[in-house]
Structures are given as C-alpha cells and as structure tokens.
Design a protein around this nucleic acid. Structure first.
Length: 847
RNA sequence: GCGGACGUGGCGGAAUCGGUAGACGCUGGAGACUUAAAAUCUUCUGCCCAUGGCGUGCGGGUUCGAGUCCCGCCGUCCGCACCA
C-alpha cells in the first residue's frame, strides 16, 4: 500500500546527504565536458522572495539535467552584498551595514538550502568581504595602469536623497533609479572607466550572441547608439569657431542656422557679458525631462548675434543658443536644416528662418517648402550645387570626402554611450584604491598594501559619506614620497562588483583575482538566467569588464555569457480596502493576501485589530512588491507544501519568459501532483513478462521531448509531458514496460522534484543518488509510430479520420479516404475535382 | 515620436516545417467511495438556433488547406526618447 510522501522529512534528509557528500561541488580537474550554469546572484536584502525561487529553480533544473547528461557542471551562488539598502538600514535602525548584510546572507542562504538547489556552496562569495573586493581593487589598478581609468571634473547626476552620484544608466526619466528623487547636475571630480573605447566591440559582439534574446541585444545596441556622420567647424564672425556634428551632411546646402547647447562654452561666454543670455540659459535648465514634458516642450532659441560662415560658401548663418541641443551628445552644437529635420523645422518656423528643400520629395523639387512637417525620407538631392542628382547616401559620402580633402571636417562616429562614472560618495562599497598626494598627484595603492579595507567604526547619524568624515582612515603616507596624503574616500559603483563575480566563481585563489587557465576552463557562462531589468546596466558592464580584462591580458574570453535567458516576474492579485472616502495616502489601502479573510461567496474582508471587518476589493494582477503588499513569502509555503511542490509550481503553466501568477490553486495543484507521483512510484510493482508497445513508445517520446524542452528552457512544456506520461502509466495494466516506465519516470522528474526522486530512487533499492544517475537513453526506433491517424478533409474542413499503417502509399490512403461514408455523403455521387494527399497526415478532397 | 514583442475557451497556456485548433494544468458540472467531510477515483467541460454551423483581436489577400505567410487596421505590454 502506497504511503504519503513526507516532503518535510525527505527534504531535510536529502539536503543533508547532498551536503555531506558534496554532490554539487564542481571539479576543476574533471575530464567531463564543463558547463557553467549561472543565475544572477541576489542582493541580500533580508529574505528571499518568489522571484528568486523562480529564477533559481529554472537554473537548477538545467544544472541537474546537465549533470545527468554527463557534464561537469559549475552552478555557484553568492551575494551582491554592497549597496545602499545596508546604509539605509544603518541610518534607520542603527545597525552596522556589515552586520545587517551578513545576517541577511545567513538567513537567505538557509532559505536557498531549504529549496534543495544543486549549488556548489564551496565557491560561495560575498562582494562585501575584503577577499573579494581586494581583488577588485587590484583589477581596478590593472585597468588604471592600462589607461582604462581616468579622473575628470565633470557635471554629474547627483541624487539629492541618496547623496551620491549616479551613472547615466541609473537615471530614469530624470530621477534616481533607486530613490526616485529628481536628479541634479553637479560638478565633481570623478573616476571613469573607458567603456566608450570598446563601444564598437560591444556592438559587434552582439552579433555573436545567438543565444541571447533579440530584445536584449537590440536594447544594448540602441543604448550604445552608434551614429556615423561628419564633424566640422564653422568660422564665426567674432573670429572664433564652433564645431558641429551631423548624420546628414548631404543636407548641408539646406542649413539655415547654427544652434549650440545652453551649457556650450560659446553660450557660457556670452552669458558672462549678457544678462539676457544668462536668463535664457537659466530658463533652459528648468525644463522638465519627462517624456510628456519633452513631447510638448516648445523649441526655444536665443540669437547670439554671431554668424557662422557656411563651409561651402553658401552664405552666413545666424547662431542661436537653443534648448533642444544637448551638450552631452556629439559636439553640443548643430546646424539646422529645417526642411529635413523635424526639430529644426519647428525652430525655424518659430523664429522665421529660411526653410529650403534640398532633398526631393517624390516629384517635388521646388526650394520653397510649404509642408507642415520636415521631410526625412529618401530622395534625390536638389538645390545643392554639385550634389544635385545624387541620392542621399551618395551625397553623404561625397560631402564627407570633400570635407576631408579640403581639410574643414572629417567623417566621425558618435556614440550615445558615455564613459562609466564609477565614483560613489558612499560607505558600503569597494574603496577606490587611489591616494591623493599634494606633491605626487594621484598615486595608486601599491599591490602589497591591498586590500584597502573599509573601516568598521563609522557613524551614520548625519547624511553624506561616512568615509570622508572618518577621523583617521583617509590619512595615509604617500606611497611615492612618504609625505602626508589622503585616500580617495569614494567607493566603486556596486555594478563593478557584479561585473566579474562569475569569474571569481570559476577560480578564486587567495593571492590574485583568479587563475587565468582555470577561469578559462569554465568560461564563458553557457547559460545565464535573470531578470530583464538587467538588460542594459549589468549585462553591458560585465561585457565591458570582460573585454577590459582581455585588453590588459588577464583573461582571454570574448563574451562572458554566451547564453542569456530573461525570466518573467512572479505576480499576484492586489487587494485594497474598500473605504470610499479614504483621505490618507493611497498606499495605506493595500492589504497583504495573508491578512485576508474569505467570507461567503468568496467575499474578501480584512479584520482590524479592534475586531472590525472592512470589505476588500480585488485589484489588478501585478508584480509582487512591498508597496502593493501583494507579496507571498516563500518560507511558510515551503514549510507547508515542501520544496518539490514549490519548485514544480514555479515550472508549470506559464512559459518561463512570461509572468507567472502566484495562486493558492496553483500550489495546491502542484502539491497534489507530487503526491500522485509518489503513489505511482511507491506502489508495488507487478513486473510481469509482457511488453506494452504503446507505453514503451510513449515513454521514449517523453524522454526525448523533455530533453528538448529542458534544453530550450521550456519547462512548462516538459511539465505537460510529465503529466501525460504519469497519466498513461497510471492507466496502463501491469507489464514489464510499466515497471520500466516507473523507474525511468523517477529520473525524468529528478531535475524538477529532486527530493521525491531521491526518496523513490532509494526506495527502489538503487545504489547511489539519482542526482548522479544518467539521463535515460532514448531508443530512436521507439519514437516512430507504426500506425497514424489521417485527417480526411473535404474542401479543407475536417470530416473524418482514418487509422492507417505508417508509410502507407498515397493511392491506398486516397482510396481509403474516398471510401469514407461521410465523404461519400458530401460528394453526393459527384467525382472529386482534386485530391491532395499528405502522407501520414491528411487527405484533402476538393469537391 | 522611434524601435520591439504580443493578442488562442471562464483562466494559465499547447499546436516544433502552412496540414485534425484548444495538448497539459486550473476552475466548474455529474457520478463512485464514505454515516459525513476531506483525500482519491471515473467522467464531462470553446460557442451556437446542433445529423449541422461558427470559432485563434478586426478587415482583406495568397493557398487544395492559414493560429502560423502577405497587406491594412485595432488593442495591450516593454525599451528608448529633443541623440543632430
């Protein structure tokens, strides 16, 4: 008689066995083919959430499956442990960021272990420990020596709430990505990594990443934003000059003005003498930066009174300061061609500047332009002297060639991508290993003095950077002259920490960041899994860091992650208190699902502490978040249903790239299936001697299908096939085939429900662990059916089906179809006009 | 505005090359077992004017045959955004 599967007992037992035997420790010296499966490591914020569970379950199934197919699998885990929340906790609760972080790590590690992930914990790392960030400092200095790091006074994005600098990538709609505060511009001396030096490579490399989502490749390409064009100087009427960049050199004869950015040196110089100009510049800076504001914002200009000489002798153009020109892109100055650029068109219309057609719009070649929008399409050049008659593309090439010959301009490539500003005015990060000496300037910390360790005794009672106000830490002797000097008190952007952790997982010697040969034996990561929110920031920085390491000769890997999968979020219904005249903050109305009471007819309510019952409205299904209070804590769920049921639910139903809606029904269903599986594998087996050909075929088709599905990360399809096989086995009468199918089924489900699989494997008297077992072999002969169902259509509509032996000749199939009673009735004695036979599939009779 | 993805029953979703639409799961109905309930098992479950007809967002097209290909719309979601 089958027993009930005691998940809690089995979970604990097998997790201990895997631990003791170090089952999932990866062997650097293995002779097996090596595979690296990695999920994005978590920030230790406190507890794991459902998103982690889903992410790590997917990676785990793949890792376990790869082990079964004979690979040496590296599947490590660690902690992205530096960052703002630890400092916020320090400020709010008075705990040290280090204690807060390490205690969170301990909690979350226990939670991950509770889910039975096949992780190599011997390689665990935390970026906040000196044995990690010290090596990062060494890499930073290697980049410094190679000229990939520089310091520059620049206008930076300053987050007034977090009191730190943000990279461009971290500014979203003009607000800090974390604090949501409006970002200000400040001038600060900052360290930069030369990511732009690799801009072309980073674009070209995308082409080789076939196993990345197209969407992510496109996002990176757009982010790098390469444009080719012409850069040239206009001579100005005051004897100076202004350099502009254009991607449309072909339209040069259509230019009617020059515009510079508000913070362009020419504008600044003018503002110093002219209060009207200064006022205009001030006004430009006030403009909002959100989508809606930019959409409706009027083009504004200020006439400097200067004129610029057209390089091809087409007259003098007025020079404006304009609010739509960005100092950060190109040269911070443009020439305006109103007929063929929408912004220039709006500007020229407002300030009554000439609008002259230079690209024919179909038949229209007249220089006078009277449309109400710029023409930006292709065409033939007109009203452009020697360019007349050329295509836009030919004219571009011609103008660039001519400019280069005559020496007044050159063909250039411009990028949207900026160098990566990495200085952060924070405590909880990797100290930048540079010393500032009044006599010697910037001096790198000698390698013998690494790591530069964060001081423990810091205070968070006032905002700002605790490192900077620490009484002693920053005071050091200059390594070069021995005089009094100061440490750089900034720390590195935490994205630096996550830019190379996957290399340290592969190789973590004590005396250097990694051993090149060992690291290269594992890298690149064959399958990387994480959220799409990292499509630009983290993935671009890691690709850059890998290239920078190659540049300095430390690692010869082209791309860090050859396979990328971006999984969907875990969502849940939201619940809101039904209080119509509520006048407090709307956030206060959200209710956590765990706090709901279900009344008659499914009506929801919330019981207050005072015992009052408030009705609750169901809201939209949204990503689980603290603010909407629609989170479900995985921990009690795992304790209630066991790790396998939770894992199974995470893989069921939704395709992994789409969102998964958490539901009580869903987890209950998963739990039922785990029990059902157990009843099947645990039941007495009447082996018998007879074979069951249909079941054999079903089994082998399932083995092959699941392998394909897991490799494609289509877990929901693999789950469906396992349901089918389970039903088929349950219904099959006792036979040798059935007993064999049950044994095989244990291995097929092992990557997904490993605890149950181990328990069943042991109960069957198998030696060793199912985790170490081989994936069942497929007999290709079994994949082929010997009988097939043929669809019989009349005029493309299904009317009947026939059973035919596989490979039946066309004429036999056709005859059988025409013999069908239903077909005969529809044909009504008339001969068919045409009959199409697709062997082993269908017959279509055209009446 | 630019770029991209998607749209299939009450719900999540299958349909791998243009060839039987709705696999599998959830929900729901009916039944068995039980004193009863839970659990479990069996069975049904796209819609309708039902020997048939209609059905994959809408309108066209190609084809013997379209969820799948082409053209034009509509809707939802995502990314970027005054990028010269």
């Amino acid at each position: 008689m089958a027993s009930r599967f005691n998940a809690l007992k089995a979970d604990a037992h097998w997790q201990q066995v895997w631990d003791e035997r170090r089952t999932f420790a990866a062997d650097d010296h293995s002779a097996k083919p090596k595979t690296y499966v990695l999920e994005m490591f978590p920030y230790p914020s406190g507890k794991i959430h459902m998103g982690h569970v889903r992410n790590y379950t997917m990676g785990d199934v793949l890792a376990r499956y790869r082990r079964m197919t004979g690979h040496e699998v590296l599947h490590p885990m660690g902690w992205d442990a530096f960052g703002m929340p630890a400092e916020n906790a320090a400020m709010e609760k008075g705990v040290h960021p280090g204690n807060w972080t390490r205690s969170n790590i301990a909690t979350m590690k226990a939670q991950l272990k509770r889910l039975g992930f096949a992780l190599d914990w011997t390689r665990e790392l935390a970026t906040c420990e000196p044995n990690y960030y010290g090596h990062e400092q060494a890499l930073f200095l290697a980049f410094y020596e190679a000229g990939l790091v520089y310091r520059k006074e620049s206008a930076v994005n300053w987050d007034p709430v977090d009191m730190t600098v943000l990279a461009n990538e971290q500014v979203i709609d003009g607000r800090g990505w974390r604090s949501g505060a409006l970002v200000e511009k400040r001038k600060l001396s900052q360290w930069f990594l030369k990511i732009t030096q690799f801009a072309d490579e980073l674009i070209e490399g995308l082409g080789s990443l076939e196993h990345w989502p197209d969407k992510v490749r496109l996002m990176q390409e757009n982010w790098i934003g390469r444009s080719q064009g012409l850069r040239f100087r206009f001579a100005l009427s005051d004897g100076g000059s202004v350099e502009v960049f254009t991607t449309r050199p072909d339209t040069i004869y259509g230019a009617s003005f020059v515009a510079v950015a508000a913070d362009h040196p020419i504008a600044q110089a003018l503002a110093a003498q002219n209060s009207e100009a200064a006022a205009f510049i001030e006004r430009c800076k006030q403009g909002g930066t959100t989508a809606a504001e930019l959409e409706t914002q009027e083009k504004l200009g200020f006439d400097t009174g200067l004129t610029a000489s057209h390089p091809l002798g087409a007259g003098e153009l007025p020079v404006y300061i304009a609010n739509f020109v960005l100092m950060e892109y190109g040269t911070g100055a443009v020439f305006g061609v109103p007929a063929h650029d929408q912004r220039d068109f709006e500007f020229a219309t407002k300030y009554d500047l000439p609008i002259r057609r230079v690209v024919a719009d179909g038949e229209r070649t007249d220089p006078a332009f009277d449309d109400d929008a710029a023409y930006t399409g292709p065409g033939v050049l007109v009203n452009s002297c020697e360019l007349d008659g050329m295509s836009v593309e030919d004219a571009k090439r011609s103008v660039i060639a001519r400019a280069q010959e005559a020496g007044w301009g050159e063909g250039t490539t411009v990028y949207r991508l900026r160098d990566w500003g990495v200085s952060r005015q924070r405590y909880w990060g990797t100290p930048i290993p540079i010393i500032h000496c009044a006599a010697c300037g910037e001096v790198p910390v000698p390698s013998a003095q690494l790591p530069v360790v964060l001081p423990e005794d810091v205070s968070f009672d006032v905002p700002g950077n605790p490192l900077d106000r620490h009484p002693t830490w920053k005071h050091v002797a200059c390594p070069t002259c021995g005089g009094e000097a100061l440490r750089d008190t900034d720390t590195l952007d935490t994205f630096a920490d996550s830019s190379w952790y996957f290399i340290r997982f592969a190789s973590a010697p004590g005396d250097k960041p990694f051993d090149q040969a060992v690291a290269e034996s594992w890298l690149p990561v064959g399958q990387y899994i994480g959220g799409v929110e990292h499509a630009i920031l983290h993935l671009l920085y890691a690709r850059f860091w890998t290239r920078a390491l190659r540049h300095v000769g430390l690692l010869d890997v082209a791309e860090p992650f050859t396979g990328l999968f971006t999984q969907g979020m875990v969502t849940h219904e939201t619940y809101r208190l039904d209080i119509p005249d509520h006048d407090g903050p709307p956030a206060a109305l959200w209710v956590n699902p765990a706090d709901l009471s279900v009344g008659e007819g499914g009506a929801l309510s919330f019981m207050t502490e005072a015992g009052a019952s408030i009705p609750v409205i169901r809201g939209r299904v949204e990503k689980m978040s603290k603010s909407k209070k629609n989170t479900v804590d995985p921990e009690p769920i795992v304790d209630q249903y066991g790790a396998d049921a939770v894992r199974w639910f995470m893989l069921s139903d939704s395709p992994p790239e789409r969102d998964l809606e958490w539901s009580e029904n869903g987890i209950e269903g998963a739990w039922r299936f785990v029990q059902r599986l157990w009843r099947l594998v645990d039941a007495d087996r009447d082996t018998g001697e007879n074979r069951d050909a249909a079941l054999d075929r079903k089994l082998h088709q399932t083995i092959a299908g699941i392998a394909t599905d897991i490799e494609a990360l289509s877990f929901n399809k693999a789950v469906a096939k396992l349901y089918e096989l389970t039903s088929a086995v349950e219904k099959a009468p006792a036979s040798a085939s059935r007993a064999e199918a049950i044994d095989t089924l244990i291995r097929l489900v092992a990557p997904m429900v490993p605890h149950l699989a181990e328990e069943a494997w042991a109960a069957r008297g198998e030696t060793g662990l199912v985790a170490d077992a081989a994936w069942p072999a497929v007999d290709p002969a079994m994949l082929v059916e010997d009988e097939v169902t043929i669809a019989v259509q009349v005029n493309g509509k299904l009317r009947d089906t026939l059973m035919m032996p596989k490979g039946a000749p066309k004429d036999t199939t056709e005859a059988a179809a025409l013999a069908s009673e239903k077909v005969a009735r529809l044909l009504d004695g008339k001969p068919p006009r045409k009959v199409i036979v697709v062997p082993d599939r269908l017959v279509n009779i055209v009446a």
